Computed example of a mutant assay.
Amino acid sequence: MSYSRGPGLPDVDATMPAVLVVVGRVTPADVPRLCDELDSLLYESGATEVICDVTGLTHPDLTAVDALARLRLTARKAGCRLRLCGARQDLLMLLRLVGLSDVA
């Protein structure tokens, strides 16, 4: 069986949200990389919504909150909405504390 793709971008179902998974402990050095990953994901998928899966986030702290705020900004600049999935209560409390409860 062979497959060949025509010219241009592959067919994309823009109604399906893109998914970005954040795992482990987020460091300040991770933030630009995560934003770049999100940019690439949005460019490739053409999605209008991003689900940020933080189920595997091990240390929800202010660095993680900063990363989520920047990811939200990155998504907004691309005309997308960022929604969290799998957020623990401590992360949700931090987001509320800093005024980002609408991300969750």
Rank of each mutant, 00 (worst) to 15 (best):
6 G>N: 13
6 G>Q: 14
8 G>L: 10
8 G>K: 11
10 P>S: 14
13 D>W: 04
16 M>D: 10
18 A>G: 12
18 A>H: 06
19 V>Y: 02
21 V>C: 08
22 V>Y: 00
23 V>S: 13
23 V>L: 05
24 G>K: 11
24 G>E: 08
29 A>I: 05
31 V>L: 05
33 R>F: 07
34 L>D: 08
36 D>I: 02
38 L>R: 03
38 L>W: 00
40 S>D: 15
42 L>V: 10
44 E>C: 05
46 G>M: 09
47 A>C: 05
49 E>D: 14
50 V>M: 03
53 D>L: 09
53 D>I: 09
53 D>A: 06
53 D>Y: 09
54 V>I: 12
56 G>D: 11
56 G>K: 02
57 L>C: 11
58 T>I: 10
61 D>A: 01
66 D>H: 04
69 A>M: 05
70 R>E: 08
70 R>Y: 02
71 L>H: 04
71 L>R: 01
72 R>Y: 03
72 R>S: 13
72 R>W: 03
73 L>Y: 04
73 L>R: 12
79 G>M: 11
79 G>Y: 09
80 C>N: 07
86 G>Y: 06
86 G>R: 06
91 L>R: 01
91 L>P: 03
91 L>Y: 04
93 M>L: 12
93 M>I: 12
93 M>T: 14
94 L>T: 02
94 L>F: 00
95 L>N: 04
96 R>Q: 08
96 R>C: 01
97 L>T: 11
97 L>K: 01
98 V>K: 00
98 V>L: 00
99 G>C: 08
102 D>L: 07
